[in-house]
Design a protein around this nucleic acid. Sequence first.
DNA 1: TAGCTGTCTGAATCCCGGA
DNA 2: GTCCGGGATTCAGACAGCT
Lengths: 376, 376
Amino acid sequence: MASVFPLAELRRSSDPFSWVDSIIKGDCVAALEALPDKSVDVIFADPPYNLQLGGALHRPDQSLVDACDDEWDQFASFEAYDAFTRAWLLACRRVLKPTGTIWVIGSYHNIFRVGATLQDLNFWILNDIVWRKTNPMPNFKGRRFQNAHETMIWASPDPKAKGYTFNYDALKASNDDVQMRSDWLFPICSGGERLKGDDGKKVHPTQKPEALLARVIMASTKPGDIVLDPFFGSGTTGAVAKRLGRHFVGIEREQDYIDAASARIAGVTPLGKTELTVLTGKKAEPRVAFTTLLESGLVKPGQVLTCARRRHSAVVRADGTLASGSEAGSIHRLGAKVQGVDACNGWTFWHVDDGHSLRPIDEFRAVIRSGLAKLD
Amino acid sequence: MASVFPLAELRRSSDPFSWVDSIIKGDCVAALEALPDKSVDVIFADPPYNLQLGGALHRPDQSLVDACDDEWDQFASFEAYDAFTRAWLLACRRVLKPTGTIWVIGSYHNIFRVGATLQDLNFWILNDIVWRKTNPMPNFKGRRFQNAHETMIWASPDPKAKGYTFNYDALKASNDDVQMRSDWLFPICSGGERLKGDDGKKVHPTQKPEALLARVIMASTKPGDIVLDPFFGSGTTGAVAKRLGRHFVGIEREQDYIDAASARIAGVTPLGKTELTVLTGKKAEPRVAFTTLLESGLVKPGQVLTCARRRHSAVVRADGTLASGSEAGSIHRLGAKVQGVDACNGWTFWHVDDGHSLRPIDEFRAVIRSGLAKLD
DNA sequence: TAGCTGTCTGAATCCCGGA
DNA sequence: GTCCGGGATTCAGACAGCT
């Protein structure tokens, strides 16, 4: 069983990371406040969207539209929901690493309020993702369109945050080599995946499909990262995180959900290291300086490089720069200059003529890298 | 030409419906305030999105993306945007019939604020509709998911409003006899439909496709209804309304847009009664990604795939890529690599051994398409 | 003519490490 | 924190021009 931490016990713990891979029993905001600053990599939140919240309802502090003054209860509910949303999002922001990101899922009942609150709190929306359901519940009365999707918001904790994890290359490779879009298609959680009690009834009313969480986690975390779910419910986030070699921490108030989630996670076997390796692109490969090509003799001073169409040419100089007419500079700068553009990847722009064909100097870089690879 | 009303002239008019089938030139809120109470059946609004773009964005080929950086899309703050949204929505509420409905389109930049404001003003959300674009602009830097959709909110002016128009049966009949879902697939507006000036440049930066408006109007209006568009722009709403036998009224500030819209609408011939019944059906077979096979459980991480002759093999990784020795990549790339060729169709190259025979993974794709997966 | 190739473009909040 | 510079990064569709 995944370990369960009563909140009071967690507060007494001397180990600042005792909560990793466990379920904290308690109120969402109180539990978040017991965790260290900047300690989790990704948050996945599936907050309640029932507007009839348990707590006291507050009168709106600003007077609202005159046309709607008879709808007092309705407005009071929105106010209370907004206050709740603000509170848990603020608590999430503190425990999230600056390089982390947060996902929130909801429907049209609540997602607009969540999105606006995220923006008000200076989170920076990266995408809104549409989960298209293959098998949504029909609209029985024929008075609306079939509500066939839910919406997730993916955001970083600051507009300037740049270092968040996004496994772009792996997602693209797994998607027929085209980049992953913002609309995802998955079945709802049913069948064997759906947790059921001894009475045969579903344990949790809104259990999310593991496939959805798997894509979220594969997209925005690395193996070993910590994924927090402040509304843990039946523990889908924890089960998928464990299976995918990530750490998790869940917060949940209801003992029944905790019991079900704990048993569920205990039954999950993590995948092995090979299966969990994430495909990375060129950005992750080691830098190779152009001078290394000269030092290794793959390219020689005085040699002429051209672009793929032989429209532009340049001479290699001994210091690792190129010269063309009166211009000179790095392979990138000179490539940009001769084309009259701002930027250029010199590795793919410049070619050598081997007698038969033009070959990009990027191939030499690959040779260097494979040599480096053999060294370790 | 569709008639154009300077706002001052409209105010002097003795005919309370002189503005029907015309474009009112002026500020959105001021113009709305010059219209009678409860006089329009449906409102379609495409307000500024408040994009908050940073610097220039270049495509990988160094060409510059023509960003929407118009003055009308700039707001000083979220508070300013909210105040603007509140003002025009309140003005819309007054002119809308109690049996009418309002549509608002937006992206993640603004739609959450619009949705929350609609709820604050006691509008009642009926659906959020996702417009999935067949041909969205890519994410050029590989730092996010491709932003491939926009969101529309469909709402009635009061939670208790019941008499709004929803042509459920017509939509269902036009949709292969299944009820219309909340996710719609349409191409962006381009080609001959896109209005261009004498200079060949697009007249309006954000012209919407007529097919989108056609579905909106066919779903939520009856022939002869009045459709109001408070941000008329290039007049798509007016053109489609006229073609579909509905009345329109547009509000627009910029003379250039008014001129283009007016000429455009003048060229539209309304359809006859019989033609007004039919519209669009489904789109082509969806692409199935390899990651879908993993997500559905048809293929599992760690599973071994081989080519038809078992000469090559590879291991499935959790991120939806394959690995073979030190090589890894998409099913297509790795298939090409192990064979030492440029390209390979991974779907037909890679096979699984089911104990009796080797079966191409393409068969699983067919299973996904038929909807048989995930039924357990 | 049909097909092929190259070019252009679309509501976009679009890099990152080291000095 | 800023500045600098290496060098990584795109999908679908319309259209023009050519064979």
